[in-house]
Design a protein around this nucleic acid. Structure first.
Lengths: 140, 140, 140, 140
DNA sequence: GTGGTCTAGACCACG
DNA sequence: GTGGTCTAGACCACT
């Protein structure tokens, strides 16, 4: 019986060309998205700068910049010589604040979904699929 | 006995600052999303360049650029002197695929959630409450 | 024993003032004509945006616009940070049809000739003299 | 036995959309081109402003502007109440000047043809076809 | 009043 | 040094 409680799904970075979104932002977004969906958790190690640069066919400076900005935001910790990790520092706030901020966040999502013509139900459904790790189809 | 002649909901553009996504792309995306969801239909007139520029507090050139790229892609028709319209020609389905747009939207929500310290699961749950008639409404 | 490694003629852009044709279109047309005639081939690098802007005494934005529209049409590839290149992907034949481009060119010559008081017949005759080795050369 | 010496080919205006060339210029160019190729000759009457505007699905002001600019250049004569005609005033210049100007004109054509990858021979040939009225294929 | 072209120039993303 | 985004503002083409 392996330890199934802490097992996480494999996580791969993928770039989306032609969107006009800067590569360093795409990297940042994928890290934070992976945290939200449980694919990465505090303490996990990220790929090395050079490895990720090779994987994405991207200049190492671009990866460095993404990691650096995430570190500034307190999301990553860089430990010289051993690598880059998801920060273990919990975001400190009490339950009341958390609930209030979550409501604000969700209200904003709703407004944006409405503008784009999505219903709250379908967004919630798709989000749950991401969170629980159902197989996602590749887009060519 | 309401006025049934106006069959579509009013459509408002909204910019999303601080995402790093170019403004002209946000405009393009909102137009395609609005078409995909039926809020805009072939033949409908878009806001004038200058009006939308004022609404979004953006330079007219930025709006022109968004409209122009959509025209090159066959999604809009512009008629000098009279305005800009949703093209009546067949629009390529894949440009407007609902599932693809939803996936993009959800990926974006996920990135924001992770960055703000929320899990996908809790966002989905709260969203579902909103969807199923929770009395709380978005706050302005 | 000349240097045969450089297989293509040098290509120079030239603007045609006073035609009413937008500068960005003239640039686009010259790129497509150069490809159609083999002066530029897939993979070739174009002048940098700023260099061409200086050469033509034109604003860099105007060059960017020309390059960008050609990219949207699949004729150019731009690589951030390294330059702009003729696309290696198959280019649609009709964009580059030699006969069509020639017809456009001749229609333009005709319009100028009439405006300047020359008949098509005499222009054709003089042109043929140049073509068949008449000693007169163009004057600067 | 009709009078074949003065018979001219039928002349129709056609707009070329999507070129970015202003409509009024396209009209002007077609008039001067028709003169160069002998389809219109001094004294010939042009379509009325309203008729041409209807034919081209264009605003009458646009046609008015084209005619007015050609009149300013001395190419058209407008006779209030009877219509618009190709000017009978010959462009005055002696043979020497004419030859010199023609050479300049042809040299310019040659330079532009070279830039676009056309040979003098093929331009001359196509030009002669226009001048002698060979059947031109429509371009869709 | 509609969209279109262009300039001058600041600042950003990327290699 | 490469291309990209955006602004401010002038002037043009067309209905």
């Amino acid at each position: 019986m392996g330890n199934t409680a802490t097992r996480r799904r494999e996580f791969r970075f993928r770039l989306d060309p032609g969107t006009g979104i800067p590569v360093y932002r795409q990297i940042m977004d994928q890290v934070t998205a992976a945290i939200a969906s449980g694919m990465l958790a505090p303490g996990d190690q990220l790929p090395t700068v050079r490895q990720l640069a090779v994987d994405l066919s991207v200049n190492p400076n671009t990866v460095i910049r993404a990691y650096r900005e995430l570190e500034i935001r307190g999301i990553l910790d860089t430990q010289q010589g051993s690598g880059t990790f998801i920060s273990r520092k919990e975001i400190r706030r009490d339950e009341l604040d958390h609930g209030r901020l979550l409501d604000q966040f969700v209200a904003d999502v709703l407004a944006r979904a409405g503008s784009a013509g999505f219903s709250a139900a379908e967004v919630a459904a798709r989000l749950r699929e991401f969170a629980t790790g159902n197989p996602q189809q590749e887009e060519q």
